[in-house]
Amino acid sequence: MARTKSDAGEASSKKPKKQRWYHQVWAAYQMTRRQDPMVTWIMLAVFLGILAIALLIGFLAGHWIYATVVGLPFALLGSMFVLTRKAERAAYTQIEGQPGAVRAALGTVRGGWNFEDEPVSVNRQQDLVFRGIGRPGVVLVSEGPSHRVQRMLADERKRTVRVLPNVPVTTIQVGSEEGQVALPKVARKVQRMKKQLTRAEAAEIGKRLKALGGVKLPVPKGVDPLNARPDRKGMRGR
């Protein structure tokens, strides 16, 4: 029995193997190829095109071997750049239209932004509003048809301004309708927002916004009420 316990302890202590970078590249390529079968030929065309230019310069300069050695890394870099852009587009295509797709896209935002995992507003049609805090202020990002999320954004903005009257609050609608931002472009739009606060002020805003709480009723379709997170602050006040 002791041997069994020690074996179990050794098994639990083993850390999962880290995925090699080439495994990640291969997985990205496989996923992209399913969405865009032409990606292989595009990558090959870019690779051969850059290499041909390097060889041409090498022949003209009389150092084609040196040009080949220098051109190979640039050819690989060019094909990897194509794969990266195509993989990003394929990933957005896979999640577009699914509930929470906006939060997944906002997960790629850099520059000190902090987005809450749970939406701050949700309706029965599963339209969502997510909140982020950064040096540009507070941003409220919605997913869903404009005629439904417009009121949700307005109500959430009022709640935020009530707590933070002097903090900039920006609303962004994500979707395919006129005036909305496409899902692949929302992260870039957020990152380009002008900074107006210090890091300390942004951190303080995050603490104060916790008082607003998270999702309120109605519960969206497909959510199990038994697994929903309780509003513990609201329960204390009862």
Rank of each mutant, 00 (worst) to 15 (best):
P218D: 10
I172K: 01
M80K: 00
R148T: 12
T108N: 02
A228K: 07
D224H: 13
A2R: 14
L72E: 06
A101M: 03
I53K: 11
K158C: 07
A27D: 02
V190T: 08
T198H: 07
K207C: 07
V70F: 03
P165Y: 02
Y29A: 06
G58I: 02
E118F: 10
A182R: 11
G132Q: 05
V25W: 03
Q125P: 05
V215T: 04
R229H: 00
V219C: 04
M1V: 00
A8S: 14
K18S: 14
L183Y: 09
G132I: 04
P37C: 00
I53R: 00
D224G: 11
D224F: 02
N123P: 10
K15T: 08
P225F: 13
L164T: 02
Q98M: 04
Q30K: 11
Q19V: 13
P225I: 11
D155Y: 15
G237S: 15
V141P: 03
E201A: 12
A87F: 00
I205E: 02
K233R: 05
Y22R: 13
P168S: 03
A52C: 06
S79Y: 06
H23N: 10
K158H: 12
R124G: 12
A8Y: 04
I95A: 08
T4N: 08
L153I: 05
A211K: 14
L106F: 06
G134W: 00
D224V: 10
R103A: 07
A211E: 15
L128T: 13
K5F: 15
R208Q: 14
R135Q: 12
K233S: 03
Q94V: 06
D155T: 15
L83P: 05
T32C: 03
N166P: 01
V129D: 05
R192P: 09
Q196S: 11
A8Q: 13
L55I: 01
E204K: 03
P184L: 03
V46S: 01
P73H: 09
I205T: 09
Q173N: 07
F130G: 11
A90V: 09
T170H: 14
